[in-house]
Design a protein around this nucleic acid. Structure first.
Lengths: 188, 188
DNA sequence: ACAGGCATGTAAATAGTTACATGATTCG
DNA sequence: CGAATCATGTAACTATTTACATGCCTGT
């Protein structure tokens, strides 16, 4: 059995609690893991086929009304693969943050133009934080319930909120530092 | 003129202050932008050739002792391209953080095993923070000098230090939350 | 009737890593 | 002398995005 691809792990995780269609997996990813692990249709559908052939998931036809639809559930073998992977130490840590890259080279521009980058970064991070916040109530519900509640999606969601808010605040601080504002009173 | 690749921008930025060889660009990237924007030889050398053909950089033979070596300097056209790009709002924000992904799915494991992921993540982040800190004195030197000092590499480096330390601390807090530690006294 | 969401997929292109190959020079 | 570092490059592979294609169903 060749090594599973990163996307394979995402899929296994996504179907580990309940069966889902490719379309559902994609929208789930977009509403949850997206900020630290994205996936596109171009990866999901072919990977579902591969996983199915390898016997790690199993597809069944479950039409929604008249519209046909295939949902995939995890097999015993798939669950073993998922757990095995979860037990290995994480090894991929990547970031592509164009704003920091631009900032890094901003010495060739006048400070006001570098500040514009910082402001754009801040706007973006505030927007993401807000978007993530909108998912919080739902994740909180999922976290409750002593027997079958799952606290991890909420935990991870909150890391995203905190990270984005930290980053936005950092941008603000750096804008001040760059444009030389008078040291502000600490509010709160 | 077709759109420049992401790596092209990295290269333009890296040669914008002084001429550098491909090898130097690579080690510079590894010691600076790497934590938010990596690049490999497999991208750098071919891209240098393309940029050279497009007239955005210019290569010259500058041997170091007897060892031959080509350094690339930015052209007027290249500088324009760099500045144009710097003035556009950043558009790429990506992360691949395997630890968060594992955590997200950790509901299928007993809590102690999820905590192991958090601990591994914390170790990793502390290590990165330490590594980044070791570059700080050098970046501080570069930042000084009213006339030609460049404060941006230091700024960006400090964002990395702060981010990694925040993340490590978050992992700690989540480990506590997960294993249900008694509310700790705030030290400091 | 039409917009928007549900649903599945593929082709082409882009991006990026890894491994390999080669060889010089420098330092201990 | 051997290891590390300087230096340049390529080939093969893996990963991922984007754009396209198709068509049904639901609500307004």
């Amino acid at each position: 059995m060749t090594e599973l691809s990163p996307t394979a792990h995402v899929i296994l995780g996504m179907v580990s609690r309940e069966p889902r269609s490719g379309y559902e997996i994609k929208s789930l990813v977009d509403n949850s893991t997206r900020f630290f692990w994205a996936a596109s249709y171009g990866q999901i559908y072919p990977e579902l086929k591969r996983l199915s052939e390898a016997g790690l998931v199993k597809g069944s036809d479950v039409p929604r009304g008249e519209r046909k639809r295939t949902v995939y559930s995890i097999t015993a073998k798939g669950m073993e693969a998922l757990k095995g992977w979860l037990r290995e130490a994480p090894a991929t840590f990547e970031m592509r943050e164009e704003g920091l890259l631009k900032l890094f080279f901003s010495g060739v521009l006048p400070p006001e133009e570098a500040a514009a980058t910082l402001r754009a970064m801040r706007e973006h991070r505030l927007g993401v934080a807000e978007r993530l916040r909108s998912f919080e109530p739902e994740a909180m519900e999922r976290a409750e319930g002593a027997e079958d509640g799952d606290p991890f999606p909420l935990m991870v969601l909150q890391s995203g909120i905190e990270f984005n808010e930290w980053f936005a605040e950092w941008c603000e601080r750096m804008t001040d530092r760059l444009l030389g504002s008078p040291a502000p009173e600490r509010s709160s």
